[in-house]
């Protein structure tokens, strides 16, 4: 049974009361997730993160949640909201069209506590694809003032992929990540493409070799769920298919 709590707050004429259902789990002493229900007043513009912070401020400060920027920039507040991975700070309660908002920790990430999850795996896979420009050392060390010029068209090739905020929503929605503990994942693959598509980069062959392994790019089935949940328009599925296009010889 879910426990129910109500916050005694002044209502404004435009506010609405909803039930915020928060998943509680502490791996140190809980054997299973339980849900706690809180009645919160929300306005048309209230975000899910603000509703959670309302609960922390007025009722239970022990609810664990990670956030920082509150403006879809830091990538900290990813969680499953009414069944789908979304950023809590970028999701308004009103857009969910539901009187009950359920928040749970992201899938495919180990739980630290409640809504906070570990990012070790995402950072490792991100690091694995060498997310930086690869150039011959001599080019950079011998001439430190050298500029690597780029045309607007060249920029257009990768700029959308550089919007990634490492929030992990894509990895949480991915059907392969759901069952495969070793899959490199859409976030890292999209970043591999971001650098491969950069005209200043010379690491294409190195990166294609890194992702050409049994738990690498070939585990992507182009279900596209990553692209549907990405809050920054990165479209990882597009980048992944382009990478595979190089590897299968459809693109050069």
């Amino acid at each position: 049974m879910a426990q129910a709590y109500e916050i005694d707050e002044k209502k404004t004429p435009t506010s609405k009361t909803i039930t915020l259902r928060i998943a509680r789990f502490n791996p140190e002493h809980d054997s299973d997730t339980t849900f706690m229900d809180f009645s919160v007043n929300v306005e048309k513009w209230t975000t899910v993160l603000e509703a959670i912070l309302d609960v922390k401020q007025h009722f239970d400060h022990s609810v664990a949640v990670r956030y920082s920027c509150r403006q879809a920039t830091c990538g900290s507040c990813g969680m499953v909201i009414n069944g789908k991975p979304r950023l809590a700070c970028f999701t308004k309660v009103s857009e969910l069209n539901s009187d009950t908002v359920t928040v749970e920790p992201m899938h495919n990430f180990p739980i630290i506590r409640d809504l906070a999850v570990r990012f070790d795996r995402l950072f490792n896979t991100h690091h694995k694809v060498k997310p930086y420009l690869i150039r011959d050392d001599s080019e950079i060390t011998s001439n430190t003032t050298k500029e690597l010029l780029q045309s607007p068209e060249e920029l257009e090739q990768f700029i959308q992929f550089s919007n990634c905020i490492k929030c992990g929503l894509c990895n949480s929605a991915c059907p392969t990540m759901a069952t495969d503990s070793s899959f490199v994942g859409p976030q890292a693959l999209a970043q591999a493409y971001r650098y491969v598509a950069d005209s200043r980069d010379k690491g294409k062959d190195t990166r294609l070799k890194i992702i050409d392994e049994s738990h690498g790019i070939w585990r992507c089935h182009f279900a596209g769920s990553c692209s549907q949940v990405c809050p920054k328009g990165v479209d990882p599925a597009m980048g992944i298919q382009f990478l595979r296009g190089y590897m299968l010889g459809f693109r050069s």
């Binding site: 090739q157 700029i159 959308q160 809050p231 328009g233 298919q241 296009g245």
Partner: peptide
């Protein structure tokens, strides 16, 4: 369809994303 998609065919073109960020591959 999937084989074409896996080859990067018909999955859209990279562009500067604009809100509301409809993914071009879908």
């Amino acid at each position: 369809r999937i084989m074409l998609g896996h080859g990067g065919i018909g999955v859209g073109k990279p562009a500067r994303p604009d809100y509301p960020y409809i993914p071009a591959s879908q």
